Simulated scan of single mutants.
Amino acid sequence: MKKDRKVVLDTETTGMNFTGCFYENHRIIEIGAVEIINNHITGNNFHSYIFPERSIDKNAFKIHGISSNFLSCKPKFSEIIVPFLTYLDNSDLIIHNAKFDIGFINYELSMLKLNVKNISENCNIIDTLSMARKIFPGKKNTLDSLCTRYKIDITNRTIHSAIYDAKLLAKVYIFMTNFQKSLPIFDNNVFENYLSKKAYSKHARSKILLATEHESISHKNYLKYMMNISGKCIWLTE
């Protein structure tokens, strides 16, 4: 069977530039990536903190809690680029709000002045934010909102973390892609097989409660009673 390899990716940065390109003059400080093969999370992850060679904005620090002092002994982007690009090779990239992360990665690549194409030219980019807006139009589609919607535990997500958020997004993506498939409701055998797939959450299965014999008898007696008092003909089925 052909291996369907996808990489779920997230980054944390020193901040954002709100005048022009949001990535210009800011740097990536953490990359987290999670591998999915044939719709299963493999555990083969890529994770690295990065020394950005500049300070971190106060507002950015409030979001991810990563300090300049912590990063002072971490590798530069140029030192992790080879293993990073090797990890991404032969995969689709899954990113929430892809424009943000792809912009930062391409900016980092441009500063290295290497003969490396933009990430979007090397990888097929799948933006889960765009997907979510089509599946849940008019609703809030942040990562937190999607996790809550799919009953994915986010109690430990007190601050942003590239690797932790990539792990959450990997679970979200599996739910999103399974839910997009049409349900074969007219074929019970196929439907049962669909529900039995591991990727389909137990939370998505609806429990069907059938009426007891006593409840069925009570219901029929009620219909007979209503027929008598209304004078209308009500057909009863056995």
Rank of each mutant, 00 (worst) to 15 (best):
residue 10 D to L: 07
residue 235 W to E: 13
residue 28 I to Q: 07
residue 68 S to A: 13
residue 88 L to K: 04
residue 29 I to S: 01
residue 238 E to G: 08
residue 31 I to N: 03
residue 62 K to Q: 14
residue 144 D to H: 06
residue 2 K to E: 11
residue 220 K to H: 07
residue 212 T to A: 00
residue 15 G to A: 12
residue 174 I to L: 14
residue 154 I to D: 06
residue 151 K to N: 03
residue 133 R to D: 05
residue 168 L to T: 09
residue 6 K to Q: 07
residue 125 I to W: 04
residue 217 I to V: 09
residue 144 D to L: 08
residue 110 S to N: 04
residue 138 G to A: 07
residue 206 S to G: 12
residue 160 H to C: 12
residue 30 E to V: 05
residue 23 Y to K: 02
residue 227 M to A: 11
residue 194 Y to H: 10
residue 199 A to V: 15
residue 180 Q to R: 13
residue 71 L to T: 07
residue 205 R to H: 07
residue 129 L to W: 12
residue 236 L to S: 00
residue 122 N to C: 03
residue 201 S to L: 04
residue 38 N to I: 01
residue 197 K to E: 15
residue 117 K to T: 12
residue 91 S to L: 01
residue 55 S to P: 09
residue 190 V to G: 10
residue 194 Y to W: 15
residue 166 A to S: 04
residue 63 I to D: 04
residue 30 E to G: 07
residue 21 C to D: 14
residue 71 L to A: 08
residue 149 R to N: 01
residue 60 A to H: 11
residue 68 S to Q: 14
residue 155 T to Y: 10
residue 126 I to C: 03
residue 12 E to D: 13
residue 131 M to G: 00
residue 2 K to T: 13
residue 211 A to S: 10
residue 31 I to D: 00
residue 24 E to C: 07
residue 199 A to H: 11
residue 52 P to K: 01
residue 107 Y to K: 09
residue 19 T to E: 15
residue 210 L to Q: 10
residue 123 C to M: 02
residue 26 H to Y: 09
residue 171 K to N: 10
residue 59 N to G: 14
residue 211 A to P: 05
residue 195 L to W: 04
residue 5 R to S: 00
residue 199 A to D: 15
residue 65 G to E: 11
residue 2 K to G: 09
residue 135 I to T: 10
residue 55 S to Y: 12
residue 15 G to M: 10
residue 111 M to A: 07
residue 121 E to G: 05
residue 176 M to A: 02
residue 99 K to A: 15
residue 137 P to D: 12
residue 144 D to F: 02
